[in-house]
Write a protein that binds this DNA or RNA. Sequence first.
DNA 1: CGGAGTGGGCTT
DNA 2: AAGCCCACTCCG
Lengths: 236, 236
Amino acid sequence: MEKRRLDCVGLPPGWKREEVVRKSGLSAGKTDVYYISPDGKKIRSKPQLARQLGEQFDLSAFDFRSGRINHSQLRKRMRHDSSLVLPIRQTASIFKQPVTVIHRQESKTKSELKHGPQDPPKQLFWEKRLQGIQACDSQEEVIKALDLPRNVQGVGPELTTENILQSISAALHISSSPVVGQGNNRATVAKNPGVNIDVYQPHIQQVIVSEDDIRRQEVKVIEARRKLQDAIKGIM
Amino acid sequence: MEKRRLDCVGLPPGWKREEVVRKSGLSAGKTDVYYISPDGKKIRSKPQLARQLGEQFDLSAFDFRSGRINHSQLRKRMRHDSSLVLPIRQTASIFKQPVTVIHRQESKTKSELKHGPQDPPKQLFWEKRLQGIQACDSQEEVIKALDLPRNVQGVGPELTTENILQSISAALHISSSPVVGQGNNRATVAKNPGVNIDVYQPHIQQVIVSEDDIRRQEVKVIEARRKLQDAIKGIM
DNA sequence: CGGAGTGGGCTT
DNA sequence: AAGCCCACTCCG
């Protein structure tokens, strides 16, 4: 029998993946997938793989059948919990990676908490968990990240451009109220993020938009619309 | 595991029904129902059962989960179509049974039919399809049919007490106008049911209600109310 | 490869 | 939201 044994992207080095096609019976034509551990042991299911690898590995996003990290799985989970669930960095491999958990300062007493429906506490800087995850198009080409305009400035500890973009995207996606940035300035926030950060706003300073900015944007939009019209005329 | 495999009332002999409770996972506690065909094949859904049994069986009123003929299904259909749908006898099994179809005499021409919204033709004596179906209480004890008062007399061919009761029940249930019985007498109807029967009325002669009848009924009601009051006092 | 047992899309 | 179906997983 011809078998394809290949190193597997989502797994530690040394692991091989194998596909076997069923040749007869009711399930003829279906394939069974299994994995060969570095020491030659045959693994036939995801639970078995998890047992073999141990606690250090997070297989929640690993698709056993395809052998890849399943991004649609990730999206499914996110829908249920907009602030994500676990303080575990989301990556494109199954290695669990340490992440600093920053607890929000709890100023409320228990009796105060009893009144009204309680929102779960929002983690500060949770967008950092998205670090290293990149969008790609249908051909799996990674889409280049945007550059930030000069007047958009991060507020918070060690924020990369990537972090800031993710923070803004998340705010636009999740929030139903205006996205305006942090009211407090950088120095204040640095002193005590737990108190001085507005968790409902992205980690950027408030951006001053001048009349000139608005006018320039209007010109751009009109320009873009004209180009689109021309393009459509060219097609029809 | 302990399984209850039982012969199933609504199905041909030899079929067994089985209930399995889900023990783990997100759906723990839910039950799955399946059926074992006489040759041991496991059937897991109603469409699959229909495929297995073939055209000879009418599962429209069969409730897969409970394994019974579903009378509430029947009622649901009646709401949409007060004269029922198919010229198939409704029984307590899923076997399709032959039934004599009586077409209503069509005196209208096609051009006449074009005007206004058309009611579907009402079948005469369709209540006969209900023959053999009996009400039962929650302990599955069959509820004894009522006796008819002497002044309630059937009008129509070969009507049993059962037919008449069903006809009256159906009229009370379906009709929004007064239920008064047939205007024409028995002899006239017997001559030509298609013409002389009022399909919107039950198959009974009009009942003469005298002043005396009314007075007797009033006494009965007052008596019943007093007894109910006494019973309630006894409880509280 | 079969089949019990569960997940999850789709319908009501 | 609840339930029905189906397809899949995982282990014998």
